[in-house]
């Protein structure tokens, strides 16, 4: 079976396999928690990449989908029973709600220039945040609330596996989607929307579908995030998350899918290590300053992001060029 897969797929499969075995070696709870966060934010960043990197749509309120997923799960477990059945129901409710919201936002604004979508999503995310803060009887307000998990997820190794398997499935699923004719049309829209329209494609439909898929994946990331914390508060609707995920995507490389995963890893590890150095020097207490510096350096030296820059260098490599000319057109 491996012979029929391309080299990239085999490498990614091996990486996911190694990550599956990692808990046998890395037993520390804090490291496991960081890895879970990387998987969750990796999924969230991939959903953002589908929008920004593949379709060229900027969203400033992507966090609302994440928050919808998070609250639907937390409320379901809190109001009903923390069972696998209700987890499945929570996922369905979360992704359907996120799908409806992204569909409405898309239909209303995606026929216009992309900054209207960015502004509407920002406004909607603000609305969700205020609603979560004020509707305390339902959401717990700013204080939030804790909830129980289904028995199967009480072991942190199971949460690790759930997040990793979700990441792998969504990565390969989105990779397939972006490599399909549909994905190529999205990339063409990113480059020249008017040209795609005059080739006979109804661009709005494609952009709305991309927005819905992206919103649904982000909502699922929210579900996993809240399971890993066992606590929810209004911070799941905070704009900070959108900025974080935007940076993860840009640092890793927009339009690459694997780039946002690397970006998520770098940002999460940087967050952990830099804030952990607070005892060494006061500057590390303000780790965000260093984080900002790293971000500026990445933008200067890796303008296409880490993966994007490496890919660009590889495609200009003489060997790669020769391969491009061999047996083409078949």
């Amino acid at each position: 079976m491996l012979r029929h897969m391309n080299k990239g797929t085999v490498i990614y499969l091996l990486m996911f396999l190694l990550l599956t075995l990692l808990p046998l070696v890395v037993t520390g709870r804090s490291m496991q928690f960081i890895l879970i966060q990387i998987f969750v934010f990796g999924i969230f960043a991939m959903s953002y990449d589908l929008l920004l990197g593949y379709t060229g749509i900027i969203s400033f309120g992507h966090v609302m989908f994440f928050g919808i997923g998070a609250y639907s799960t937390a409320i379901m477990f809190d109001r009903f029973e923390p069972t696998v059945g209700y987890l499945v129901l929570a996922v369905i409710v979360g992704v359907v709600l996120a799908g409806i919201v992204s569909f409405i936002a898309g239909i209303l604004t995606l026929r216009l220039k992309s900054h209207y979508y960015a502004m509407l999503t920002l406004a909607l995310a603000g609305l969700f945040l205020v609603a979560a803060e004020k509707w305390t009887s339902f959401t717990g307000g700013n204080d939030g609330f804790t909830f129980g998990l289904p028995d199967i997820l009480r072991d942190s190794n199971m949460i690790y596996l759930l997040c990793l398997i979700s990441l792998a499935l969504l990565f390969f699923g989105l990779r397939r989607l972006t490599a399909s004719p549909f994905g190529k049309v999205l990339m063409a829209i990113r480059e020249n929307e008017q040209r795609v329209e005059s080739l006979g494609y109804h661009v709005l439909h494609y952009k709305v579908v991309a927005s819905v898929v992206s919103g649904v994946v982000a909502a699922y990331a929210g579900v996993l995030y809240i399971i890993s914390l066992r606590f929810v508060d209004t911070s799941v609707f905070a704009t900070d998350f959108t900025i974080d995920v935007l940076l993860m995507t840009i640092i890793g490389g927009v339009g690459t899918l694997i780039g946002p995963l690397i970006g998520a890893g770098l940002v999460e590890f940087a967050h952990h290590w830099l804030s952990g150095l607070a005892d060494v020097h006061w500057i590390f207490e303000r780790w965000i300053i260093l984080y900002g510096t790293v971000y500026i350096l990445v933008v200067i030296f890796f303008p296409l992001g880490i993966v994007g820059t490496i890919r660009a260098k590889l495609t200009r490599h003489p060997l790669r060029k020769r391969n491009d000319l061999k047996g083409v057109g078949s």
Partner: peptide
């Protein structure tokens, strides 16, 4: 010309073919 610069020649053609 409106070429999709990041798509390969083959991908440009397949987008056009629908």
């Amino acid at each position: 010309q409106g070429i999709f610069a990041d798509l390969t020649v083959g991908e440009n053609m397949s987008v056009a073919m629908k």
